[in-house]
């Protein structure tokens, strides 16, 4: 019951007074209420719990966590996360055009395993 799941906001609409979204969880799309994250935009990652988005994922912080984990155990880390790490945490800053074009996968270490 405690395990909220992160997903990507792919559609936003108003349902009466409530702002609702369709959120993609690695292919499975579910409805989520955005009442508690009014600033969320299309393409943002949110953690959804019992149909409510409760937290927006901070990509910069997710990258920092990945870097710490990588320092702890580089080989184990790469084995655990596979190619997702290479796509999401490039050593050099990504050119903005590429960043926009690439459909970012869920921030690693938080995507549904």
């Amino acid at each position: 019951m405690c395990l909220g799941i992160p997903g990507k906001v792919v559609e936003i609409r108003d349902d009466g007074p409530l702002r609702m979204a369709r959120v993609d969880f690695g292919g499975v799309r579910k409805e989520a209420c955005l009442a508690y994250l009014p600033e969320v935009q299309l393409g943002d990652y949110v953690i959804v719990h019992v149909g409510f988005a409760i937290s927006q994922l901070d990509e910069e912080e997710a990258m920092k966590t990945l870097e710490i984990l990588r320092m702890l155990d580089p080989e184990g880390m790469d084995m655990e996360l596979g190619s997702m790490v290479e796509e999401a945490a490039p050593k050099a800053p990504r050119p903005p055009a590429a960043a926009e074009a690439a459909p970012a996968g869920p921030p690693p270490a938080s995507g549904p395993a």
């Binding site: 992160p6 009442a35 508690y36 994250l37 009014p38 953690i47 409510f52 409760i54 937290s55 994922l57 901070d58 990509e59 912080e61 997710a62 920092k64 966590t65 921030p107 938080s110």
Partner: peptide, 18 residues
């Protein structure tokens, strides 16, 4: 805070209000 990508010190104020 290990879970900095999802948790802020003050939490979700909008949710707390409701």
């Amino acid at each position: 805070n290990q879970y900095a990508r999802a948790v802020k010190r003050e939490g979700n104020l909008q949710a707390q209000k409701t």
